[in-house]
Design a protein around this nucleic acid. Sequence first.
DNA 1: GAGATCTCTGCAATCGGTTGTATTTTTATA
DNA 2: TATAAAAATACAACCGATTGCAGAGATCTC
Lengths: 330, 330
Amino acid sequence: MSGLAKLSGVDISTVSRALNGSPLVNGKTKDHILKLAHETGYAINARARNLRKQSSQTLGIVIPVYPGSQQTLSDPFFLEMIAAVSQAAAKFDYDLIINLPNSPSEIAERRLLLSGKADGLIVIGQAGRIERLRSLGDAADRVVVWGGMMDAADYTLVGSDNLEGGRLVGEHLKNIGRHRVVFLGDIDLPEVELRYNGLMSVWKGDGADPSVMHVRSSFDGHEAYRQTLALCEGAQSFDAIFAASDVLAIAAIHALQSKGLRVPEDVAVVGYDNIGQAAMFSPGLTTIDQNIKLGGEILVNTLIDKIAGNPVRATLTPTKLVIRSSTVGG
Amino acid sequence: MSGLAKLSGVDISTVSRALNGSPLVNGKTKDHILKLAHETGYAINARARNLRKQSSQTLGIVIPVYPGSQQTLSDPFFLEMIAAVSQAAAKFDYDLIINLPNSPSEIAERRLLLSGKADGLIVIGQAGRIERLRSLGDAADRVVVWGGMMDAADYTLVGSDNLEGGRLVGEHLKNIGRHRVVFLGDIDLPEVELRYNGLMSVWKGDGADPSVMHVRSSFDGHEAYRQTLALCEGAQSFDAIFAASDVLAIAAIHALQSKGLRVPEDVAVVGYDNIGQAAMFSPGLTTIDQNIKLGGEILVNTLIDKIAGNPVRATLTPTKLVIRSSTVGG
DNA sequence: GAGATCTCTGCAATCGGTTGTATTTTTATA
DNA sequence: TATAAAAATACAACCGATTGCAGAGATCTC
């Protein structure tokens, strides 16, 4: 910038104002400086600017690797969420730092926020993170969490309506006449618990006695595969599986088929997330669409509001059922 | 930091040295300062440090959204690559800024590098990026590209051995007696072209006349689905499909099955990438494992070497065939 | 015990912008 | 033309760390 100042014969303060479009500089001066900047390929030094402006124009996103899943992270849900958040952030000229904690003890939240590397933080999922969020002190004002609505949450939550999602699945299964349902997922995770509660609510007060069985599984497909195999070998009979994610649903379908069960004729399967590939499985996957793109936008909008000090409240994104062949024809 | 200096009664320069583990400070002094820093929850201001040290301890990763794929990005390959790079970068205490260009005209490469937001850049795939890389000037010294080896490349490349990958698939198909092969992918992409060449090389010089048909498809599953349907309705007969990615392979399998063709009995299908879900499809997907985790590590190691000014050369990661049921039993 | 050496700490410059205030130049008004 | 008001520019402090250098105090050597 001092180079530009010499070239154009004005003070660097004028150069700065010109590059930032300040109305204080004369039109001709501004044009001249901008032209020089373009010709020399000048780019404002973000490090200096960040220091002076006490901001980084950068958001952080923390993607938890759930304990126990040592293998490569590959649930497309996360990628779609990252893409949604990244694109939403770009609209505000924010960059996105991604953090995939590799050790459970690492507290990326503190490091990124307190050092000022990120102006605000988006955390995907509440599981195992709650204590950490509490430890952030003032910095918690610059955090938004994607997750299921919880009364106990004293941080800002954005999420899809997991209760409604579970309910939609329950009604759908009921409509197609399935009553012996297996819920595949880990209801210790708040988001998953809500989906389970939504499912259960369908039969509540109803004379019919649904038998919903909970099979605990992390979000790792291989585990779901094993669980489903074990389920087939067990004594309990069932005619439907509601999985807490599409990846789990796909694993379950594969396990069922390897046991000679037909999907959806013998067992209907419903997933959750509506990932891009869900439409391309055979059989196509019935699932709940969380509207991740909208979710990402709301996360970013909310976070930027918080950073600006504006009051915000928890938000739900709409949820809808997408019916494909895996529960049709049963 | 000036707060810590007052608390501990020493100059901020001593505090700085203590926090950075300099051997210049007395052991007791250091312990005292560290204790105070811990108690007060002090974190070094990254913005100031970055400016002074002329470094950001941050790498950037650019994930291209291929032109034409307007829908949500969801190929798990990218997520696995992001995870691998992120974890490798973390070992060097580097953070990772992710950039998903939403308009083809955006030149994130320039912005991130020249502004100093990132010390170096990893670009996934060469397609449509070559001219941009050339426009970076000196900054090109801090860029590493993941992609297929090209003679024309005048930038640093890291990638898996696509030629070998294609060859392995070809040999495998030949071994199981398939000779009428469809190649599904866009050979205008350098990485894909190499896979195609590898496939073709298997029959070269051989008396047998393989009929390899190229069906152009982007990396978008929906397009591959339509292409495969069209293929089934066409005149050409075929007994195998080699898809340029697992997502394409899955889409193809679904299309084949919807046309009543059996996989792998009627048509064998082989994918590429070995994404986490590949093992859980039915039928399980035979595919090429690029060793993404190792690739991410090499990308980061190479980039950090370049940033340090060390000479580096192009690197290939090993490639291996993973056989599952989709091409077995044919 | 004087001088040399070694440890440790403080001073002050520096990184490259932004921005409040002062100053100069230009334009408007009487 | 003199003066006030407005516009444009320059000056200088500041953001919060790092680091070369100077100097104080402790330790060593003969």
